[in-house]
Design a protein around this nucleic acid. Structure first.
Length: 568
RNA sequence: GUCCCCGUAGUUCAAUGGAUAGAACGAAGGUUUCCUAAACCUUAAAUGCAGGUUCGAUUCCUGCCGGGGACACCA
């Protein structure tokens, strides 16, 4: 709809003023009385054309080619053109929804395009903390959205399974580790070793040097260290996978950690040095320098000859280009790494590794009210712990609200986990997120359970509609009924539009906010319009609306990775 | 010191340069003989400060104040 209006406006402006307007923005008016869509184009053109906006708007309207799908067009305020969709357009949309079902809202704009989404990136030997939710859930949602729009998506988990940290861990294990204890509770015991290392290293900085030596041995293929490394990885991944499973709907096409690039970095280093993009730094290290010192130097090889995160990222860009020839690569990573990605992207340009669009999908930090969270010090809120608490809370509420329902465990799991995911997804990713237990465990208001509940209500109506009609007489406020119906169905065509904007901006919260608005409108409708007690045409029509609503809600929640429930 | 991000009701968050700055939680009040009250309906309550650009600024620019982060041998 948005696109259609855009096109019509563009043509009308060309015809009337012989101007090409590239970027016409179609807005959603703040109030329903201002229509379903609006454009402020007349005001933008006013200065250029030296005419007043009203006049321009009138001329544009006169030149609109096709307006049959609209009920009316109005000029309002300082010169807005407001578009009102006709009932027929909205009803046709309902038919489309009922026909397309699970595919409704999907698109083809991504046809023949592929996109790599690099997300989650947990570290080996450390448990998933609650802050890992951000990359994992945002990344997965973008994956779902892009796939829905027709892109071929390649989800990669770039796990942190290489680097100096393994030197630290190896050193710590050799000194204080115990095989049997670790096998019993791998991640926690490895974490303890890691913390112990940092405690000791604070007093004795020479340990850092020891750790670097261990890592160098590892990188040079030392058998013992390699064996230990492999073991650390295996036992950790098993544990991490358990958490992903519990979170649900998390899917990676490839798990290619940093170690995956061990044999792929030499080529990049050679290329960089040969092309003089890599320059000699201090003590025999290699760095990239940027034009006008726009960014600080980018270290790509350490003075002892070993590699870094940056080296592996460059190798990854190269590998991904050669393997998939992607149109885009998204890095769903914390804002703390902004500079790193700026340096990486710029270096990519200098080395010409790929012409794919590289995007750092940044998100804010998770902040904690009480203490600073640091894996090194061991105060970390575990993701498992948060999820389990949320499920527990959901269980409690089920027992209060609907104690006779069957499948309580499953429902509690979907509600609890969904709620936690939704909190992350409903927030604009660029602002820092404040963690607090109360918020994480909140199951009302703007939350996943609210949406799931709305869905369950809709499905309940649909189930009951198959029973025999009550045939009671009802009196209803006709005007109010019409209003509620209009508000609800006019939101339907926007599903696709918001999905598209979410993808363009890499912001699932745009979709989430729409879903909430839709559910609110449905609940308001539910409250004042009776469906099952309506008759004949009304009954049929209202059932169609309810079904259409349920389809959109399900499709949208699926994109967010939140599961719907038939009953709750 | 340099650079980046963020400052919106009591709290946690929305708001593609547009119309009366939206929600949720919390507070005050109301709605169940009727499709699931995990709901619905009212009320009170906010753009850090000072300039600038614009017909129009929470949004763009400058300065200040406050918070977070990054600045080569960690990732």
């Amino acid at each position: 709809m948005q696109e259609k209006i855009k096109k019509l406006l563009r043509e009308a402006i060309k015809k009337a003023f012989s101007r090409e307007v590239k970027d016409i923005k179609i807005e959603y008016p703040v109030e329903e009385i201002y229509g379903d869509y609006a454009s402020s184009i007349a005001m933008h053109l006013a200065k250029d054309l030296a005419k007043n906006p009203h006049e321009i708007a009138e001329t544009i309207i006169k030149n609109l080619k096709e307006t049959k799908f609209l009920k009316k067009i109005e000029i309002a305020g300082p010169g807005f053109i407001n578009f009102y969709l006709s009932e027929k357009t909205l009803n046709d949309e309902i038919k489309t929804i009922l026909k397309e079902k699970d595919d409704y809202g999907s698109g083809k704009i991504g046809k023949n395009k592929n996109i790599i989404i690099d997300f989650s990136q947990p570290n080996i030997a450390k448990p998933l903390g609650v802050h890992h939710l951000l990359s994992t859930v945002i990344g997965q949602s973008l994956y779902n959205i892009y796939q829905f729009l027709g892109y071929e998506c390649i989800g990669i988990n770039h796990i942190g399974d290489w680097g100096t940290q393994f030197g630290k861990l190896t050193y710590a294990y050799k000194k204080w580790g115990d095989y049997i204890i670790i096998e019993k509770d791998p991640i926690n015991e490895l974490l303890k070793l890691y913390i112990r290392f940092h405690e000791k290293a604070e007093k004795d900085p020479s340990l850092e040097e020891e750790a670097r030596k261990e890592f160098k041995k590892l990188e040079n293929g030392d058998k013992e260290n390699l064996c230990l490394w492999k073991w650390f990885c295996d036992i950790s991944m098993k544990e991490i996978q358990k958490t992903y499973d519990y979170l649900g709907n998390i899917h990676f096409d490839y798990i290619q950690g940093e170690s995956f690039y061990n044999d792929k970095m030499e080529k990049i280093l050679e290329k960089g040095k040969k092309e003089k993009v890599f320059k000699k730094g201090e003590k025999g290290s290699w760095i990239v320098k940027f034009e006008n010192d726009k960014y600080p130097p980018f270290l790509v090889q350490k003075s002892d000859g070993t590699t870094l995160y940056s080296t592996r990222d460059l190798a990854a860009v190269n590998y991904r280009e050669k393997t998939w020839n992607p149109d885009k690569i998204l890095y769903v990573v914390d804002v703390a790494q902004s500079l790193h990605f700026k340096q990486l992207f710029k270096t990519n340009e200098m080395l010409n590794l790929t012409d794919a669009e590289l995007v750092h999908v940044v998100f804010g930090r998770m902040q904690f009210k009480e203490k600073k969270m640091s894996t090194r010090k061991g105060n970390i809120i575990l993701l498992d712990e948060v999820l389990k608490e949320a499920v527990k809370k959901a269980e409690k509420i089920i027992l209060e609200k609907n104690p006779d329902i069957s499948g309580k465990n499953k429902i509690a799991h979907k509600v609890g986990v969904g709620a936690v995911k939704y909190i992350i997804l409903s927030q604009n990713r660029t602002t820092n997120i404040t963690f607090d237990w109360e918020k994480m465990l909140s199951l009302e208001g703007n939350s996943a359970p609210y949406l799931q509940y709305s869905y369950a209500r809709a499905k309940s109506i649909l189930r009951k509609s198959k029973e025999k009609p009550s045939n009671q007489k009802i009196s209803e406020d006709k005007k109010k009924t019409e209003e509620k119906i209009r508000s609800l169905i006019s939101l339907f065509p926007k599903f696709q539009e918001y999905t598209l904007i979410s993808a363009e901006e890499y912001k699932p919260n745009i979709l989430a906010n729409y879903m909430y608005e839709l559910a609110q409108s449905f609940n308001s409708f539910y409250n004042s319009v009776s469906v099952l007690r309506a008759r004949d045409v009304d009954l049929k029509y209202r059932l169609q609306i309810v079904e259409a609503f349920s389809i959109i809600l399900k499709n949208g929640l699926t994109l967010l990775g939140v599961e719907v429930l038939e009953e709750m």
